[in-house]
Design a protein around this nucleic acid. Sequence first.
DNA 1: TCTTTTTCTGACCGTATGGTCAGGTTGAAG
DNA 2: CTTCAACCTGACCATACGGTCAGAAAAAGA
Lengths: 222, 222
Amino acid sequence: MKDNETGKRTKNGRNTSGSRAEARRATEDAILKAAETVFAEAGFGGATMQLIADMAGLPKANLHYYFETKEALYRRVVERIFNIWLEAADVFDAAAGPAEGIGAYIDAKMEISRRHPNGSKVWASEVMHGAPVIQDYLETTLSDWTEGRATIIRRWIAEGKMADVDPRHLLYMLWATTQHYADFSHQIETLNGGKPLSDAQWEAAKTSVKQIVLRGIGVIET
Amino acid sequence: MKDNETGKRTKNGRNTSGSRAEARRATEDAILKAAETVFAEAGFGGATMQLIADMAGLPKANLHYYFETKEALYRRVVERIFNIWLEAADVFDAAAGPAEGIGAYIDAKMEISRRHPNGSKVWASEVMHGAPVIQDYLETTLSDWTEGRATIIRRWIAEGKMADVDPRHLLYMLWATTQHYADFSHQIETLNGGKPLSDAQWEAAKTSVKQIVLRGIGVIET
DNA sequence: TCTTTTTCTGACCGTATGGTCAGGTTGAAG
DNA sequence: CTTCAACCTGACCATACGGTCAGAAAAAGA
């Protein structure tokens, strides 16, 4: 993202509109966005601060003014997508039953895969490499989240609202299937004749996933 | 893998049993195995030839005697897991119907996730970063494979043997779900109290996946 | 045994990386 | 206008990386 939407500019082309806090946030956002792209495309090891700086339109030294180290910047990128995913859980909790809750959760996760494929890739990369940076999140926030959702699913099962399936493995399937459309977007695109999924194809994907899963847990008819 | 299972050894500890061709294959295997581990744990960019050499018990310069470049070594690692996956397709083709074919395919892919988690991770990493090295495989072999399997699924649907689902999205779900147990093994392990899945838990995972998918495509009863 | 080929390796090289820093610039506050 | 903290940056540094190479060591062949 270029830093030139509005406002006056200095001879260096920097945005000077708004308060300093605003400018700071805008610059940080631009860096985070560039970093997300570079980390997703090259992995942590393959990403370079120089490339992130170029993409954000800043000299490399300036990156280290906003983010102390490469790791610190990386951590912020990972935390970002994690929080987006957590918010998607709201639709799950608010639901009266599995058809509505899990269906809406699939929709939400699919939409995130479409809108934030890079964030998803960075997360996948991080976990694949043993979660060196966000292990604490896995052990605390994610663990609690998972247990909470598993409890809801068990209640739905006890109430006869869905088939008796292991909540953990159901959640893994939901994560795997929805995130696959982000993490493996390149493969999907290649198998789609080199073209990204169209709007209609994304809808078809959502429908297919929901059909198979919801029928698989016995909440919709054949 | 250490190079000292059997045979006489020189003062440098090198294995001298068998023919030269055998020894060469053994050394290459040791390097490939070490490389698979390191690439899986660190990604292509984060992996170093020195680390691979150390893990294989060879001086770094010797790696370049067997594999010209880091890329060449990496390519061999990726090709390896791809071929293993292709072989798992046999059970799919030999089947009379979806319950048998897709069920066996899930079993086979889950078993591969369990036995070759590192290979799966390297593949995932490669695809996530845009398949810079194996794009040709995606466009030829994988594309053909996918089309072939989709045809079989369409026939099963036409014959009324399973529900009418989009073959592509079904295949993506199968890949995503089974490979998730390899690619996200660290996350699954953390959510399992820090312990790897036991034999019984792997069986439960297989059963859960098959139940949901097979019921989801209407080939088993509720 | 002597010769040739294959295998192995320590030492080395050019490059690129993450990070630092001194000093310049800017904008807000007084 | 002056002051000062916040912001910015070119130049620099130590390190680590992929890769090379001359030559040693070992094995095969004659």
